[in-house]
Structures are given as C-alpha cells and as structure tokens.
Design a binder for these strands. Structure first.
Ligand code: ZN
Ligand code: ZN
Ligand code: ZN
Ligand code: ZN
Lengths: 156, 156
DNA sequence: CCCAATCGCGTTACAATATATCATCGGAGC
DNA sequence: GCTCCGATGATATATTGTAACGCGATTGGG
C-alpha cells in the first residue's frame, strides 16, 4: 500500500475535500448534498439520519425530508465521504475522504463521543480471517462500545 | 486465560447448556424463555426479534409479543446465551454459552448466512487499541459484511 | 393466613429507523 | 421543442425498538 498523507480536514477544507472526492467519482456536488454534508459535519458525534435531516432543515430554512437524507448519506458512505456507525444506527463525516481505511470506532455508551482509529495492520488481519473463511469483497465493521476516559472519571 | 473445551452444542445439548448458564447467573429458566431460546436456535442465520416472536408464536400456538421477546433477548445477550449482530439488527444463539469470547461475525450480504469466528488474539489487539484510547469496559463489535464462497460461485 | 415486595409476562401505545413508490423538476443531448 | 435521465419532493408504509402500566404467581415476614 502506498504511503499517504493521512491529513485530517476541518471546516472549509473538509468540505472542499469532500466535494473533490465526490466529483472525482463522477457524482454531482449539488446544493442539497452540500447542505447534508455540512449538517453531518456539524455534529461532534455520530448523528442519526433524522438528526441530520433536522439540522439541515434548520440551516436551509426549509423542510428536508429524512428520505432524501438517507439517499444522500448512502451515496456519501459509498463514496467514502461518510461512515455508518452500525451499532449506533448513525453516521459520521469522514475527515479524510481521500484515503481508504477500515476504520475502528470507539463509542462511549455514556456520552456518545466517538473516537476514530485507523489501524491498517489490525484491519488486515480481520480481512485475512474473512478471506480464510471464503468471504469475498469484505467490508469490516469494527466498533467498540465502552466508556470513555472522561465519563469514567466523572462517574467513578 | 485458562484453556477451555470450546465445545459447540446443538439441539437438546445446546438448550441444556443455555439453561444451565442462565440459572448459574441467578436467573430463571421459564417456559417463555425456553420457547424464545428454541425459536432463536431454530434459525440457521441471524433473526430479528420480530422473526423470533413469530417463530415462537407459531411453536407455542399463541401470540407472543415482540415486546416480550426483546426483553428476553436482552437478558440472553447479557447472559451470553445469544449475540446481537449489530449490522443486521438481528440475533443469533450462542453455541457455546459457557465461554466468553469477543466473537467475529462474517455475514453474507447475498444469502444472510453468518459464520462465527473466535480469534482471541485479534480481539485482544482491538481491546488494546481501545484501552490505549482511554476506553474502559470495552465490548468489541467485530463484523464483516461480504459475499460467502457459495454465493460468489453461484453468482459469478 | 395476610400483606407487601418482587418478578415474569401481557397489553397497548408510541418512538425511532429505514424503505418503497410515484410525481416533479431541470439540465444534457438531439 | 422534445426526450432522456439523474436529483429531489412528497407520501405512505415497513421495520425495529421503548415506555408505561397492570396482572398474576411466588416469596418472605408479620
Ligand atoms: Zn489516511
Ligand atoms: Zn463518555
Ligand atoms: Zn470457547
Ligand atoms: Zn451467501
């Protein structure tokens, strides 16, 4: 695997990186998609499609149906602009859409904060286990539910 | 970690192992719980709570509400009699309820068949990654979506 | 025996998440 | 203009998951 920059984007830069990635895939970067991406990126923890729909509606000053948000989030996940957190039925913006990782999410059951870890060696061994069982086109889902350090301290 | 037998139970033996495990935990093995366990174990792939409710209803000849099934499945998951497959919103019976593993599920997107793998070394490194990020009481969720060998061959 | 407490379960209602279907709209190509 | 097609709107429906409350059986103390 080639080395890569692994830069994490924020704000405007993240939006630009997402737009570039999506258009590179041959998809359109529409106003609607920009609005959904901004709404998703505005959360600091995984957000449900309905949360995103509400935030986008507020930002746009008009009702945006959850329906449309689902469509766009699916597109984003397919294009690596966003990730789905399966164990939370929620989505997060991908801070480095230009590079592909099997990412690992650590999700705090208490506060919902989610830490994103990339460990290519670890995910490689999971893919290897899948391959040995005859599975092809593997897409690993690696998540850890637990309690974050902050909640652990405050709750005792 | 002590060595253990790692025996996979089936049919009557599985049911007995589940009952023993649950009662060892100080919980009751009621007729209702037995019915739900049997219904769950009758599936050869992950089943939703509603699927289990329907199967149990059929087997018992009376309506069993999904509500009750959820309560019992939660209890089962807590007692290691069953596992939740997060990426499928579904449950599977645990074939060896007496030993604790962070299990890995390989789920075929085409046919739904699910393979269960235990790799203690692999899960240990995931727990380690979580611990390094300050997470406590980690409960790993390791699933791989893909295509099983059989579907791969038949679909080309 | 009577009472209070607990537990398992029934029942109903409801909330949250996700998909299906068809209409509409606007741009690209002809 | 006309047609095709992708994006979105609108509505309905399906699926998954919780909340709230009550009932009956069991248990343990008086
Ligand atoms: Zn990277
Ligand atoms: Zn926390
Ligand atoms: Zn074992
Ligand atoms: Zn398959």
């Amino acid at each position: 695997m080639a080395r890569h920059d692994h830069r994490l984007h924020e704000g405007e830069a993240l939006r630009d990186a997402a737009r570039e990635r999506l258009t590179d895939q041959g998809e359109q970067w529409t106003g609607m998609r920009a609005a959904v991406f901004d709404a998703l990126a505005s959360f600091d923890k995984p957000a449900s499609a309905y949360d995103v729909a509400e935030a986008a509606s507020k930002a746009e000053g008009r009702r945006i149906a959850a329906n449309s948000v689902y469509r766009i989030l699916d597109l984003f996940v397919g294009a690596n602009l966003a990730r789905r957190v399966e164990s939370a039925n929620a989505y997060v913006a991908n801070k480095h859409p230009e590079c592909l990782h099997d990412c690992i999410f650590l999700i705090c059951d208490s506060c919902g904060q989610t830490v994103h870890v990339d460990d290519d060696a670890l995910s490689a061994s999971i893919r290897k286990a899948a391959a040995e069982a005859g599975f092809s086109a593997p897409r690993p889902v690696i998540e850890v539910r637990g309690t974050c350090g902050e909640c652990e301290r405050s709750a005792g």
